[in-house]
């Protein structure tokens, strides 16, 4: 039975990865550093041999709650409260975004889309596996190997016409 659970976690992780990377790239995170702190992280990533636009992406995730935070918090609230929890999470993520001097398009739209996906997939994959999947997805970008992750993010940004 453990094998089935691990397969569910991996599939949920792939869905969450596609969700937050595509939404963040579409709303222009790799294009420019939104706040001053993201600039220094991007230049640091460039110094160790990565891509500068991937570095801006990582810095913007650290400095304000974007679609990654929206995905995690909406899956937590929909595990605890059902569909209404996702809407409450979208409201609170918008307030957090405005506190960090960010327009807040990416966070709320990411939260609403993951709520819809969890509601559609709930007979097959429960919301508990999406939490672990989101942690696994953020681990592959922020925690595993910064150089290659930033090169991959830069290629995706170039393909979607955001940044160079």
């Amino acid at each position: 039975m453990e094998i089935v659970e691990i397969i569910k976690v991996v599939v949920a992780g792939i869905i969450c990865w596609l969700n937050f990377v595509l939404i963040d790239t579409y709303f222009g995170l790799p294009e420019k550093p939104g706040v001053l702190g993201a600039k220094t992280i991007g230049e640091k990533i460039r110094d160790i041999g990565g891509n500068i636009h991937g570095g801006y992406f990582m810095g913007n995730i650290v400095c304000s709650p974007d679609a990654s935070a929206g995905t995690l918090l909406a899956s937590i609230m929909s595990y605890l409260m059902g569909v209404e929890g996702g809407i409450i999470a979208a409201l609170l993520v918008w307030i957090g975004n405005r506190l960090c001097a960010d327009p807040g398009y990416a966070g709320t739209i990411g939260a609403l889309t993951i709520t819809a996906i969890i509601y559609l997939l709930s007979p097959i994959i429960e919301a508990k596996y999406f939490i672990a999947g989101m942690v696994l997805a953020i681990f592959t970008i922020q925690g595993f190997e910064h150089k290659y992750a930033s090169i991959l993010l830069g290629k995706i940004a170039k393909k979607m016409n955001r940044g160079e």
Binding site: V35, G37, A38, G59, V62, S64, P65, A69, L99
Partner: peptide
């Protein structure tokens, strides 16, 4: 989560 994001924003600045 929101408060820890605020804190790391301040450190990077």
């Amino acid at each position: 989560f929101v408060c820890s994001t605020l804190s790391s924003n301040a450190i990077a600045y």
